[in-house]
Simulated scan of single mutants.
Amino acid sequence: MAERKVRMFVYISCFVFLSTVTSSPIPSVNVKPVSPVVVEEQLIWLSGGSEGEVDIYRTPLLVATPRGSLLVLCGARKYSSGDAGPKFLAIRRSTDKGQTWSPTAFVTDDRSPDGFNPGSIFVDETTSTIFVMYVHCAHHYKCNVSTLYLINSTDDGLTWSHPRNISEQVGTATFDPGPGYGVQKKLDPYKGRLIVCGHGDQQHSGVFCLLSDDHGNTWRYGGTRKSIPYNQSKKAGDFDPDENQPLELPDGSILLNARNEHTYHCHCRVIMRSFDGAESFPLENLYFDEKLIEPRAMASQWYSNGVLFFSNPAHQTKRINLTLRWSYDNGTTWASSLTVWPEASGYSGMTMLGEDSEHLYIFYEKGVKSSIESMSLAKVALYGGL
């Protein structure tokens, strides 16, 4: 059965999906218009017990390292597809722009009945350190206290440190990073700051950001946007921004794109913006992007050369139709879109290699009947062509 799935995915991935053009604003004269097309795709992990104790691979993390490698990570769920339960943190590494990959390695093993949730990956460019922040006991099914951990690699992802408990600095209230990536500010204010944003639990939910101004040694809480109501369970229609992804725009502001967990106002994304380095997310800078429809899932955003990219399963209720959109005005309007995979698809992450401004990588959950059947990496040529 697993072999048939592999053959099916390889066959389907040979197709190149062209963009669906919509009415769009004309890009700035200083911005080169993009015409994305998927030119390569590789199956990274196949669920179903094909590797050791792992039942399901979920929650994609993707990063380009300072040395030009690509790292893919995910939560390798040992016994079931549910969020709770023990997991490995699985990793593979490519040093040739995604052409070949190292064998799967397991960086952490939580050995716990109520396991960890990955998490956010981010890079301190100053120290060339790669970090992964993750939470243990996020769901409180078989444990009571959440603990936030940080691991790091200083050798391009080859080896990783022992987990460091940073709940000693920020407390034990549930903080579930990302999932996705954190950012290091390249511009003022607070140039060099590390920012990791995430969400809380069912009662104490909303968007929360952790900040470090000393290269990840110490952390504190920054901007928040709490759910309404707070400190009580939620129901359909409540305001509850959840899984989220920050990025830095060219003016130094932080743009945060969040899951709308209980579909307040719409089946669409919640957008926030901070002009003080994620110290705050004022209410006047919050809006709902009704163009970015969603079925309540993780999404990703990326910025390069005047273009903002966004990926998610573009459907109001089903995790299908993984779509890449792009904007020339920081998301005020969306110029056009590309269907990356029309069938079952879920969480996604994006990155670009530092020396290659013409290709975007999308790592996402992919399937035919279910999005948790596999995890795949698509390479997108931003200016067309094979």
Results as ranks from 00 to 15, higher is better:
residue 212 S to L: 03
residue 298 M to K: 12
residue 157 G to W: 03
residue 293 I to N: 06
residue 363 F to L: 07
residue 92 R to G: 08
residue 368 V to E: 11
residue 158 L to S: 15
residue 221 Y to E: 12
residue 280 S to K: 11
residue 375 M to G: 06
residue 26 I to K: 12
residue 156 D to I: 04
residue 375 M to K: 07
residue 272 M to Y: 13
residue 127 T to F: 04
residue 124 D to G: 05
residue 201 D to K: 08
residue 2 A to P: 04
residue 221 Y to H: 13
residue 138 A to R: 11
residue 89 L to T: 09
residue 186 K to F: 05
residue 324 L to T: 00
residue 234 K to Q: 15
residue 203 Q to N: 11
residue 323 T to F: 01
residue 357 S to Q: 02
residue 51 E to M: 05
residue 11 Y to D: 14
residue 366 K to V: 08
residue 153 S to G: 04
residue 71 L to G: 01
residue 166 I to R: 10
residue 341 W to H: 08
residue 233 S to D: 15
residue 353 L to T: 00
residue 133 M to V: 10
residue 37 V to F: 00
residue 290 E to A: 06
residue 66 P to R: 09
residue 360 L to H: 00
residue 199 H to M: 08
residue 379 K to Y: 00
residue 219 W to N: 04
residue 299 A to S: 13
residue 229 P to Q: 02
residue 124 D to E: 08
residue 40 E to W: 02
residue 256 L to V: 05
residue 278 A to H: 02
residue 277 G to N: 07
residue 307 V to K: 00
residue 381 A to L: 00
residue 236 A to R: 06
residue 329 D to E: 07
residue 341 W to P: 01
residue 121 I to K: 01
residue 306 G to K: 01
residue 349 G to L: 03
residue 123 V to L: 09
residue 84 A to K: 12
residue 30 N to T: 15
residue 27 P to R: 03
residue 359 H to N: 01
residue 28 S to N: 12
residue 17 F to R: 11
residue 164 R to L: 09
residue 82 G to I: 09
residue 139 H to C: 08
residue 44 I to G: 02
residue 11 Y to Q: 09
residue 277 G to H: 04
residue 148 L to I: 13
residue 109 D to Y: 10
residue 198 G to I: 10
residue 338 L to C: 00
residue 28 S to M: 05
residue 371 S to R: 10
residue 123 V to P: 05
residue 97 K to D: 07
residue 366 K to W: 07
residue 160 W to S: 07
residue 67 R to F: 08
residue 175 F to K: 02
residue 326 W to N: 00
residue 181 Y to C: 06
residue 348 S to W: 01
residue 255 L to Q: 11
